[in-house]
Each structure stands twice: as C-alpha cells, then as structure tokens.
Design a protein around this nucleic acid. Structure first.
Length: 421
RNA sequence: GGUGAGGUGGCUGAGUGGUCGAAAGCAGCGCUUUGCUAAAGCGCCGUACUCCAAAAGGGUACCGAGGGUUCGAAUCCCUCCCUCACCGCCA
C-alpha cells in the first residue's frame, strides 16, 4: 500500500511512476485524492461535534456530583448524538472506501529499473553455465520412460495441471526438497518454518494477492480463507501487526509448501507436462529487514536462489524485470530462468523481489528503530526454488536420449543413489 | 462440538458507569551521584487520524472485534473471534 501522504503531496510524481507499469492507474489516484479530501472533511466535522459533546458530558458529571439539575443539558447532548450518527457513518464509510481504493494501487517501480510495458524490455544481467543443445526427449518422455511420474492418472484423480510422482520419481522430489531446505537453512542461515497452507483473507491482502487477483486463488467460506498460492503469504505474515526490535532484523525464513493456483486464463500456454500446475511444491525464501538493509538483502537473496542451480549444474540466466513486468506488490524483481533443453528455452524457477514498505504497510508490520520510532519494515522474497520446473530442467539437462538420469553429486546423499535407470 | 475462565499500553498487571489514555512494576530514553561493570535518585516515555502555512499547541478515536444501553462505557448488555482448562470426538 502506498502512503496516502505521498499521494496527497505529490500525485503527479506517483502517477508518472505508475504509468511505467502495465495498466492504467491515473484515474484511481484521482479517486483516492477525492475520497481523501471528503474523508478528512467529514472526519473533522465529527471530531468537532464530538469534542463539544464530550465537554458537555463532563459538565453534567460535575453538576450531578454537586447535586444540581442537569436535565436541560442532557436533552441538549441527546440532540447532538442523533446529528452525529449520520456524520460518523459517512466518515467511516469514506475511510473504508479509501483503504479499499489504496489496496488496488500497485507498488511504485524502483528508480533505475529498465522501462517497458512487457517482458521484452527485461534485461539479462548475467548468465551462468553453458546451455545444452536441444534435447529431443523432453521431461514428459523421460519421466514416462523412467517411470518417475504419471500425468494421466493425476488427471484422473484431480484434473489437468496436477502431477502424481511415482516410485523413484517421488523419492527424487523428496530428495530435492530436503536438499533445498538444508542448503537454505544450514548454508544460508534461514530459519525453517512449516506453516499452514490455508490462510485468512487478511494475509492475502497483506502480501498483495488480494483484492485484485481473487480469481486466480482457491478460496473458501465466501472468500474468508484461501489455499496459499505461495509460502510468501504465510511467511511474510508471521509478524503481521507486530512491532519488532531493530536488533532482531533481518529475519530470514524459509519453508517448503504446496502452492495452489487456478491459472485462470493460462489454458493452452505451456500446459504440456509439469510446467504450469494448479498444485506444486516450492521452497520459498522471505526476509524482513530495515530500509537500509533491503538493497543488499535482495542481492544476497538472489544469490541464495542461484546457488541451487549452480550446485545442480543447471545453466541459467538472471533477468532484471522492467517496470511493466514486475509483480503488483514488487518494486524490483530479478527472475532466475533455468535452461530446459527439452523445451529449447528458459523456464522461470525463481522470482526474487523487493517490496520496500509496501507489504509492511498493508499488514502493519513495523519495527522500533534505535531512536524509538516505529517504522515500517521492508520485506523481500524469492523462490529457492519452485520444484516442478527445477525437476523438468534436471531431467532434461542430465539425461541423454534413452539413457539414465545422472544425478548431480550434491543430490546423491539425499536420493541414496547417483542415477536413475 | 460442550462447559468454565479469560482477552487492558513493548511486557507484567490494577482498574466494575463520570476529570481513565488508563495505577504500579519491568524494559527504554535523559540527567545527577559514586564507580570498572553495576547500583541508587529524579524526570521523560502508547498508537493512529486530524486541525493550524509550519512549529508550538489543540482535537478525535483506540482497553480482542462489532453492535447496543446511557447525557457519559475499559467498566453494563448482545453477537462474534481468539487464548487457557476440563469433557466429548478424531488423524
């Protein structure tokens, strides 16, 4: 959520920055400004009225104490209350309306981002490894040949967009999860969390999935609860409505959870195999820090995710997303794209973002700084990494046509063997 | 699901209709004294919104949430949420 003061004080600058995103927000800002003006006006009137009422009520208390007759004053105050009811209702309605409008404004892109309205303007800032030549056997064929998973039976159980890992394939998924969590906790210092995957509506608003993207989520009880689309939601909301101590920052959390997405409107796009799923596992990294720390923390977070691909010997590239391609709540994002020889292209396996105080403001997450002031925290997150696409890249990179899957060395102890098939 | 007890400021905890935004203690900040740490004394110390051109200074709201009673509610009533205890059920 943007600071209403910032919008009030410099609406043209806010509009100009939002204009670099995809989507139109200028009208929304105007609505907010109008609402803010009306809200403050009616708030001020209620407050004056209430002040007068409080004053008279105290007077009545004094009169009663000294045994006098206060019935005239009482009648007068009673008249006040009725008048106030309407005004008060208007004020609180406007307040709710303003919050609702503010929740629909995305974060401002950080200064210095490449500008552009779609993915074409993203900038590749580094490459790692040598992309293998096209593999004629893609992960679906490899998985079938080696008996690692069964997409058809998954569809029979749950529909398209689900996977049923089988035998060694299931063990490989579990080995990957353990490898990833151990890496992020032991080598990179994240605290492992096993959170609930059903979250309240407020949490989804806190991180920014709601109110705008409700159609993409699996909701329950008329929108009171949702299956998490990412562990970002539960992890970032751990300290919602809290005031942390500056000395305990940065906080670093990781969790592996299933993620649930409707993927509405994605039918036909990248739907073969396990590239786009309604349910998938993902190891998520979340940091809560001070504004001063957040720049460096984004770089190290991205490095923590990259380490996964390096250890698994999977060539990848890092993209800096342009203003039009960053997510709703993000102010800056690096995408990690792993090379998938069976696809002949790159797959996004991690998205590392900095949110500034945008999410913290939504979830009222603050820390007490060394001067004793309460300040909104900065939040960051990134995948470390998504499992199915990592799995795809692993299969397509480390399998020769008709041959076994040769596992990279770091997975051997986790899987209990060095190859499959 | 049932019964009972609770939810007060960063924390602990008093307060059952009227100068209560809320005693006291702890933590924090400042000063003084002695000193290596430490200790003692004194003072300050919630948040949000809003008014004023700004500062100074006002005002309003907030004692789990929402409603109600009343001239006036942390305090009385109702509903809901959460926590704890016991019972039931259950992986």
């Amino acid at each position: 959520m943007l600071d209403i003061r910032l919008i009030r004080e410099d609406a043209p600058a806010v509009k100009a920055r939002l204009a670099t995103r995809s989507g139109q927000y200028a009208d929304l800002i105007d609505l907010i400004l109008a609402c803010d003006a009306r809200r403050r006006e009616s708030e001020t009137r209620v407050q004056h009225l209430r002040a007068e009422k409080n004053r008279l009520s105290k007077e009545i208390g004094g009169i009663k104490k000294s045994g006098g007759d206060s019935s005239e004053l009482e009648a007068q105050v009673k008249g006040f209350s009725e008048e106030m009811e309407d005004l008060g209702r208007t004020a609180s309605e406007l307040d709710a309306e303003q919050r609702d409008l503010l929740l629909r404004v995305p974060n401002l892109p950080a200064p210095g981002l490449p500008e552009g309205h779609d993915a074409d303007a993203n900038v590749a800032i580094r490459h790692w490894g040598e992309p293998a030549p096209m593999n004629p056997e893609d992960h679906v064929a490899i998985g079938e040949r080696l008996g690692l998973f069964d997409l058809e039976r998954a569809a029979k159980i749950s529909g398209s967009g689900y996977v049923l890992y089988t035998g060694a394939g299931a063990r490989l998924e579990r080995a990957l999860i353990n490898f990833l969590l151990d890496l992020q906790t032991r080598a990179h210092g994240y605290t492992e969390i096993a959170p609930p995957v059903l979250v309240r509506r407020e949490c989804m608003e806190g991180t920014g999935q709601l109110p705008k993207f409700e159609d993409d989520m699996y909701g329950f009880d008329e929108g009171a609860a949702f299956l998490t689309p990412t562990a970002e939601v539960s992890l970032t909301n751990i300290h919602r409505d809290e005031i942390l101590q500056e000395s305990e920052l940065p906080l670093k959390y990781t969790a592996c959870t299933p993620c649930f997405r409707r993927e509405a409107g994605s039918a036909g796009r990248e739907t073969r195999g396990m590239i786009r799923m309604h349910q998938f596992d993902k190891v998520e990294l979340v940091k809560i820090c001070t504004p001063e720390q957040s720049e460096a923390e984004l770089e190290s977070l991205t490095g923590d995710a990259e380490k996964v691909l390096q250890l698994l010997q999977l060539p990848y590239r890092v993209l800096e997303l342009c203003t039009g391609d960053i997510g709703f709540s993000s102010s800056r994002t690096y995408d990690l794209e792993v090379w998938a020889p069976g696809q002949g292209g790159y797959l996004e396996v991690s998205s590392c973002s900095q949110f500034g105080d945008y999410q913290a403001r939504r979830m009222n997450l603050r820390y007490k700084n060394n001067e004793g002031k309460n300040v909104f925290c900065h939040t960051l997150n990134g995948s470390g990494t998504a499992l199915p696409r990592l799995y795809v890249a692993l299969l397509e990179t480390h399998t020769k046509p008709g041959g076994p899957l040769i596992l990279p060395e770091p997975l051997h102890p986790y899987f209990g063997a060095s190859q499959i098939g």
